[in-house]
Design a protein around this nucleic acid. Structure first.
Lengths: 217, 217
DNA sequence: TAATTTTATTAGGTTAGTCTAATAAAGCAT
DNA sequence: ATGCTTTATTAGACTAACCTAATAAAATTA
């Protein structure tokens, strides 16, 4: 269907559009796929020919419906394989990406669906990124405040309610960003503070104010 | 390390040498990798340069130790992935080959070993082909007569004791060849005949004479 | 706005792996 | 052995994906 290289460009464009509504330029793509900008121009022409993207110097590149569908499937496979590598083969989260980059290109009618079923229909990959469903939908992340999460549950940072610099700097200090997993270890009834585990092994205590400023799902 | 294409050539050469002690010619390789003979000549040069094979117009191509080691790892991965696809994802034996062709090229330090462990160290793939061990050894197939296999067990045709044309023709008729899986469904005490399942779904009854002429493991 | 810097694009070249067509070498059959 | 057929090899070309260097266009800053 599409070459491995084409798939990598589509995935990169998808990821770039996922991050924010920014204009997707040849240069940004070049950086994402680690290639010279001139090469990107060639590929932009090719993907445009194939009606996988639209490109316009002013608006930048944008996936067409067809391109989006293709990219979503690649991302779905990538994230499912990451779950497989962590849950079934016991790799740690820093080892899985490179392998998933290869596995995501394996083609077969219903491979993603079978894998999805085998893994128990996970909603997020080990990095906290949402896994697109078979129909291309992302899990409809019902956001809650971190303070609403029950003890023992793990959630994932989806957004911040408070966007003050001081709060964001605190998040940065704690290595918390969109997608970070947080497990609620304990809640202190006295003042509403929480014992949480951030990511894989960092534990800390945060205040009620903090827990009411972070949106998770 | 080696390109996907190189890996495919090495695997093909390995498979050709596995079948019998025949001379491996450019033409036979061309047929195996589905490519023009002229292309094979180029690749022979490349693989020779890389000391993965030795080539001589008279003796044909032969894997070096290095080439053999590489090929064995690819075959190991291929066969392990086939087990995964059948046992874990529920694909049938005719669907798995094409996917395993892609999966076998996924590179990572200890991926094969982890997969092997996860699958419970299988010795044969769903087609009955032996899975090379981590050290490159093939399972040392202790051969028995089919007649010695217990009811309910599945075994795999390893060799024939009787090489008469008439017996081989009978085997052909039953679609039994080296590697074919046979499950012993029942043994008739009266005359030593056996109810067996050949391959995936063909059931038949064979005589004691038959069961004592087939070596399995 | 003019000058400078950055970004986009074109032109032309490289590499891996493929092909076809032509030639050389072997193998086989009379 | 001598011609016929098959196999191996060379020569030359193509494609996808990449590169560098040069130019054009846009954006930024003085």
């Amino acid at each position: 269907m599409h070459s491995l290289t084409e798939e990598n460009y589509l995935k990169a464009i998808y990821r770039l559009s996922e991050i924010d509504g920014n204009k997707i330029t040849p240069t940004s793509i070049a950086e994402a796929v680690n290639v010279n900008a001139a090469s990107v121009i060639d590929m932009i022409k090719k993907l445009t020919e194939k009606k996988l993207i639209n490109y316009d110097k002013v608006k930048g590149a944008k996936l067409t419906d067809k391109g989006n569908k293709t990219a979503l499937l690649i991302v779905r496979k990538h994230r499912l394989w990451e779950v497989f590598l962590q849950d079934k083969l016991g790799y740690s989260w820093d080892e899985i990406h490179e392998m998933a980059e290869q596995l995501e290109h394996v083609q077969h009618e219903d491979l993603a669906d079978r894998l999805d079923k085998f893994l128990g229909y996970p909603e997020y990959d080990p990095h906290g990124d949402p896994i697109p469903k078979s129909n291309g939908q992302l899990p409809d992340t019902v956001k809650k405040l971190l303070s609403e999460i029950k003890v023992g549950k793990t959630c994932r940072v989806a957004a911040v309610k408070d966007t003050s610099t001081i709060f964001l700097q605190y998040l940065l200090q704690l290595s918390v960003s969109i997608g970070t997993k947080i497990k609620v270890i304990d809640k202190i009834a006295f003042d509403g503070s929480m014992n949480i585990q951030i990511g894989k092994d960092f534990k800390t205590t945060v205040s009620q104010k903090f827990a009411e400023s972070l949106l998770v799902d």
